[in-house]
Protein backbone atom coordinates (compact mmCIF):
# COMPACT_ATOMS: atom_id res chain seq x y z
CA UNK A 1 0.00 0.00 0.00
CA UNK A 2 1.16 3.47 -0.79
CA UNK A 3 0.06 6.17 1.54
CA UNK A 4 0.50 9.87 1.19
CA UNK A 5 2.12 10.97 4.35
CA UNK A 6 4.17 14.10 4.01
CA UNK A 7 6.02 13.41 7.24
CA UNK A 8 7.48 9.97 6.54
CA UNK A 9 10.77 10.15 4.71
CA UNK A 10 10.89 7.95 1.63
CA UNK A 11 14.48 8.90 0.90
CA UNK A 12 16.94 10.43 3.33
CA UNK A 13 20.17 11.84 1.99
CA UNK A 14 22.68 12.37 4.78
CA UNK A 15 25.88 14.40 4.41
CA UNK A 16 26.55 13.09 0.94
CA UNK A 17 29.61 14.24 -0.97
CA UNK A 18 30.16 12.87 -4.43
CA UNK A 19 32.37 13.47 -7.39
CA UNK A 20 34.67 12.01 -9.98
CA UNK A 21 38.39 11.31 -9.62
CA UNK A 22 39.97 14.45 -8.17
CA UNK A 23 36.95 16.69 -8.43
CA UNK A 24 34.27 16.94 -5.77
CA UNK A 25 31.02 17.95 -7.44
CA UNK A 26 28.66 18.05 -4.48
CA UNK A 27 29.70 18.51 -0.88
CA UNK A 28 27.84 17.62 2.33
CA UNK A 29 24.33 17.47 0.95
CA UNK A 30 21.48 16.46 3.29
CA UNK A 31 17.75 16.45 2.69
CA UNK A 32 14.64 14.27 2.94
CA UNK A 33 12.12 13.33 0.30
CA UNK A 34 8.76 12.58 1.89
CA UNK A 35 6.38 9.85 0.88
CA UNK A 36 3.94 10.87 -1.82
CA UNK A 37 5.43 14.23 -2.67
CA UNK A 38 6.85 15.58 -5.88
CA UNK A 39 10.35 16.71 -5.07
CA UNK A 40 12.52 18.77 -7.39
CA UNK A 41 16.31 18.91 -7.36
CA UNK A 42 17.15 22.21 -9.04
CA UNK A 43 20.18 24.19 -9.96
CA UNK A 44 22.14 25.65 -12.82
CA UNK A 45 23.88 23.47 -15.35
CA UNK A 46 27.00 21.93 -13.85
CA UNK A 47 25.91 22.23 -10.23
CA UNK A 48 25.91 18.47 -9.69
CA UNK A 49 22.23 17.62 -10.12
CA UNK A 50 22.94 14.56 -12.22
CA UNK A 51 25.79 13.49 -9.93
CA UNK A 52 23.41 13.65 -6.98
CA UNK A 53 20.79 11.71 -8.95
CA UNK A 54 23.34 9.01 -9.86
CA UNK A 55 24.38 8.71 -6.23
CA UNK A 56 20.74 8.46 -5.09
CA UNK A 57 19.89 5.57 -7.42
CA UNK A 58 23.13 3.77 -6.57
CA UNK A 59 25.00 4.23 -9.83
CA UNK A 60 27.71 6.28 -8.17
CA UNK A 61 29.35 5.56 -4.87
CA UNK A 62 29.25 8.64 -2.63
CA UNK A 63 32.67 9.71 -1.33
CA UNK A 64 31.15 10.25 2.10
CA UNK A 65 27.66 10.11 3.58
CA UNK A 66 24.71 7.77 3.28
CA UNK A 67 21.47 7.45 1.41
CA UNK A 68 18.54 5.70 3.07
CA UNK A 69 15.36 4.35 1.53
CA UNK A 70 13.05 4.18 4.51
CA UNK A 71 15.27 2.56 7.11
CA UNK A 72 17.49 0.76 4.64
CA UNK A 73 20.83 2.05 3.51
CA UNK A 74 21.39 2.14 -0.24
CA UNK A 75 24.67 0.54 -1.26
CA UNK A 76 26.23 1.30 -4.63
CA UNK A 77 24.93 -1.08 -7.32
CA UNK A 78 28.48 -1.90 -8.38
CA UNK A 79 29.31 -3.26 -4.94
CA UNK A 80 26.16 -4.80 -3.56
CA UNK A 81 23.03 -4.43 -5.68
CA UNK A 82 19.99 -4.36 -3.41
CA UNK A 83 17.30 -5.73 -5.66
CA UNK A 84 14.51 -5.17 -3.13
CA UNK A 85 15.27 -1.44 -3.10
CA UNK A 86 15.91 -1.19 -6.83
CA UNK A 87 12.63 -3.00 -7.42
CA UNK A 88 10.83 -0.09 -5.71
CA UNK A 89 12.50 2.50 -7.94
CA UNK A 90 11.64 3.56 -11.43
CA UNK A 91 14.19 5.67 -13.28
CA UNK A 92 13.68 7.77 -16.37
CA UNK A 93 17.05 8.66 -17.85
CA UNK A 94 17.74 11.89 -19.65
CA UNK A 95 18.02 10.25 -23.06
CA UNK A 96 15.40 7.58 -22.45
CA UNK A 97 17.97 4.75 -22.52
CA UNK A 98 15.69 2.37 -24.40
CA UNK A 99 17.23 -0.88 -25.56
CA UNK A 100 17.62 -0.28 -29.26
CA UNK A 101 17.47 -3.92 -30.27
CA UNK A 102 14.07 -4.55 -28.65
CA UNK A 103 10.63 -3.41 -29.73
CA UNK A 104 8.84 -0.81 -27.66
CA UNK A 105 6.61 -3.50 -26.12
CA UNK A 106 9.58 -5.69 -25.20
CA UNK A 107 11.32 -2.72 -23.60
CA UNK A 108 8.34 -2.24 -21.30
CA UNK A 109 7.96 -5.99 -20.73
CA UNK A 110 11.60 -6.49 -19.69
CA UNK A 111 11.26 -5.53 -15.98
CA UNK A 112 8.00 -7.45 -15.78
CA UNK A 113 9.61 -10.61 -17.08
CA UNK A 114 12.60 -10.05 -14.82
CA UNK A 115 10.81 -9.38 -11.55
CA UNK A 116 7.46 -11.17 -11.81
CA UNK A 117 6.27 -14.60 -12.83
CA UNK A 118 3.13 -13.24 -14.47
CA UNK A 119 1.87 -15.29 -17.41
CA UNK A 120 2.46 -13.97 -20.91
CA UNK A 121 -1.15 -12.86 -21.44
CA UNK A 122 -1.12 -10.71 -18.31
CA UNK A 123 2.25 -9.19 -19.21
CA UNK A 124 0.80 -8.36 -22.62
CA UNK A 125 -2.17 -6.64 -21.00
CA UNK A 126 0.07 -4.75 -18.60
CA UNK A 127 2.39 -3.57 -21.37
CA UNK A 128 -0.66 -2.41 -23.27
CA UNK A 129 -1.97 -0.53 -20.21
CA UNK A 130 1.34 1.22 -19.59
CA UNK A 131 1.76 2.19 -23.23
CA UNK A 132 -1.84 3.40 -23.35
CA UNK A 133 -1.09 5.53 -20.29
CA UNK A 134 1.61 7.38 -22.24
CA UNK A 135 -0.51 7.29 -25.41
CA UNK A 136 1.74 5.01 -27.44
CA UNK A 137 -0.02 1.66 -27.59
CA UNK A 138 -0.11 2.00 -31.39
CA UNK A 139 3.69 2.01 -31.56
CA UNK A 140 4.15 -1.16 -29.52
CA UNK A 141 5.81 -3.11 -32.30
CA UNK A 142 8.14 -0.37 -33.47
CA UNK A 143 11.82 -0.19 -32.66
CA UNK A 144 12.98 2.79 -30.56
CA UNK A 145 14.92 4.26 -33.48
CA UNK A 146 11.65 4.63 -35.40
CA UNK A 147 10.23 6.98 -32.74
CA UNK A 148 10.80 10.67 -32.16
CA UNK A 149 12.74 11.85 -29.10
CA UNK A 150 9.59 12.76 -27.17
CA UNK A 151 7.99 9.42 -27.96
CA UNK A 152 11.13 7.56 -26.85
CA UNK A 153 10.96 9.42 -23.58
CA UNK A 154 7.33 8.44 -23.09
CA UNK A 155 8.20 4.78 -23.77
CA UNK A 156 11.00 5.08 -21.22
CA UNK A 157 8.41 6.44 -18.77
CA UNK A 158 6.17 3.47 -19.47
CA UNK A 159 9.12 1.17 -18.79
CA UNK A 160 10.01 2.98 -15.57
CA UNK A 161 6.40 2.62 -14.41
CA UNK A 162 5.99 -0.99 -15.47
CA UNK A 163 6.22 -2.35 -11.93
CA UNK A 164 4.29 0.55 -10.37
CA UNK A 165 7.33 1.65 -8.37
CA UNK A 166 6.95 3.52 -5.10
CA UNK A 167 9.50 6.11 -6.16
CA UNK A 168 10.05 7.48 -9.64
CA UNK A 169 13.15 9.42 -10.65
CA UNK A 170 13.14 11.76 -13.60
CA UNK A 171 16.48 13.07 -14.84
CA UNK A 172 15.75 16.24 -16.82
CA UNK A 173 12.36 15.08 -18.08
CA UNK A 174 11.87 18.11 -20.32
CA UNK A 175 15.32 18.02 -21.94
CA UNK A 176 14.86 17.99 -25.70
CA UNK A 177 11.08 18.29 -25.57
CA UNK A 178 8.96 21.13 -26.94
CA UNK A 179 7.08 23.20 -24.35
CA UNK A 180 3.76 21.54 -25.12
CA UNK A 181 5.07 17.96 -24.88
CA UNK A 182 6.97 18.97 -21.78
CA UNK A 183 3.79 20.37 -20.20
CA UNK A 184 1.95 17.18 -21.12
CA UNK A 185 4.69 15.16 -19.46
CA UNK A 186 4.31 17.34 -16.35
CA UNK A 187 0.60 16.52 -16.33
CA UNK A 188 1.41 12.82 -16.69
CA UNK A 189 3.81 13.06 -13.75
CA UNK A 190 1.17 14.79 -11.62
CA UNK A 191 -1.36 12.18 -12.68
CA UNK A 192 0.90 9.33 -11.55
CA UNK A 193 1.56 11.12 -8.29
CA UNK A 194 -2.09 11.75 -7.50
CA UNK A 195 -3.58 8.47 -8.71
CA UNK A 196 -1.40 5.99 -6.85
CA UNK A 197 0.61 8.27 -4.60
CA UNK A 198 3.98 7.58 -6.18
CA UNK A 199 6.82 9.59 -4.68
CA UNK A 200 8.50 11.50 -7.47
CA UNK A 201 11.97 13.02 -7.63
CA UNK A 202 12.54 15.33 -10.57
CA UNK A 203 15.99 16.58 -11.51
CA UNK A 204 15.41 19.73 -13.48
CA UNK A 205 16.45 23.27 -14.24
CA UNK A 206 13.10 24.11 -15.82
CA UNK A 207 11.45 26.71 -13.59
CA UNK A 208 8.07 26.43 -15.25
CA UNK A 209 8.01 22.69 -14.77
CA UNK A 210 9.17 22.93 -11.15
CA UNK A 211 6.51 25.52 -10.28
CA UNK A 212 3.88 23.38 -11.96
CA UNK A 213 4.57 20.07 -10.28
CA UNK A 214 6.91 20.24 -7.29
CA UNK A 215 5.66 20.32 -3.69
CA UNK A 216 9.17 21.03 -2.50
CA UNK A 217 12.54 21.68 -4.06
CA UNK A 218 16.17 22.02 -3.19
CA UNK A 219 18.53 24.34 -5.00
CA UNK A 220 22.13 23.29 -5.54
CA UNK A 221 24.79 25.91 -6.10
CA UNK A 222 27.75 25.29 -8.42
CA UNK A 223 30.12 27.44 -6.33
CA UNK A 224 29.16 26.28 -2.83
CA UNK A 225 28.69 22.75 -4.20
CA UNK A 226 25.83 22.17 -1.79
CA UNK A 227 22.17 22.91 -1.03
CA UNK A 228 21.57 26.62 -0.63
CA UNK A 229 17.78 26.56 -0.38
CA UNK A 230 15.02 24.13 0.46
CA UNK A 231 11.25 24.59 0.34
CA UNK A 232 8.26 24.97 -1.95
CA UNK A 233 9.48 26.55 -5.23
CA UNK A 234 7.01 29.46 -5.12
CA UNK A 235 8.01 30.37 -1.60
CA UNK A 236 11.65 30.28 -2.60
CA UNK A 237 10.91 32.56 -5.51
CA UNK A 238 8.91 35.08 -3.53
CA UNK A 239 10.60 35.25 -0.19
CA UNK A 240 14.24 34.34 -0.59
CA UNK A 241 16.62 37.05 0.44
CA UNK A 242 19.72 35.35 -0.94
CA UNK A 243 20.64 36.93 -4.24
CA UNK A 244 21.67 33.64 -5.86
CA UNK A 245 18.30 32.07 -5.07
CA UNK A 246 16.41 35.11 -6.33
CA UNK A 247 18.48 35.16 -9.49
CA UNK A 248 17.84 31.50 -10.20
CA UNK A 249 14.12 31.55 -9.55
CA UNK A 250 13.47 34.77 -11.39
CA UNK A 251 15.63 33.62 -14.24
CA UNK A 252 18.05 36.48 -14.77
CA UNK A 253 21.79 36.78 -14.46
CA UNK A 254 23.13 39.21 -11.89
Amino acid sequence: MLTNDFSVAAISVRNVSAGYAEEIVIHDVSFDVFKGEVFAVMGRSGCGKTTLFRAMVGLLKPLTGEIYYGAEKMEPISEQPQLHILRKLGVLFQSGALFSSMTVADNVALPLRQFTSLPKNVIGELVYLKLELVGLSDSAKKLPEELSGGMQKRVALARAMALDPEILFFDEPSAGLDPLTSAELDQTILGINSSIGTTIVVITHELRSAFAIANRAILLDPVEKTVIAEGPPRELKNSASDLRIRAFFRGYAD
Binding site: N121, V122, E125, L126, L129, L163
Partner: peptide
Protein backbone atom coordinates in the same frame (compact mmCIF):
# COMPACT_ATOMS: atom_id res chain seq x y z
CA UNK B 1 -10.70 -3.07 -3.45
CA UNK B 2 -8.64 -0.57 -1.50
CA UNK B 3 -5.70 -0.61 -3.89
CA UNK B 4 -5.33 -1.76 -7.48
CA UNK B 5 -2.21 -1.17 -9.49
CA UNK B 6 -1.38 -1.72 -13.14
CA UNK B 7 -0.60 -5.40 -12.69
CA UNK B 8 -3.97 -5.87 -10.97
CA UNK B 9 -5.78 -4.17 -13.83
CA UNK B 10 -3.90 -6.34 -16.29
CA UNK B 11 -5.01 -9.44 -14.38
CA UNK B 12 -8.64 -8.29 -14.49
CA UNK B 13 -8.43 -7.53 -18.20
CA UNK B 14 -6.88 -10.92 -18.78
CA UNK B 15 -9.71 -12.50 -16.79
CA UNK B 16 -12.29 -10.70 -18.88
CA UNK B 17 -10.63 -11.89 -22.05
Amino acid sequence: LSYLDGAGMAVIRNFAR
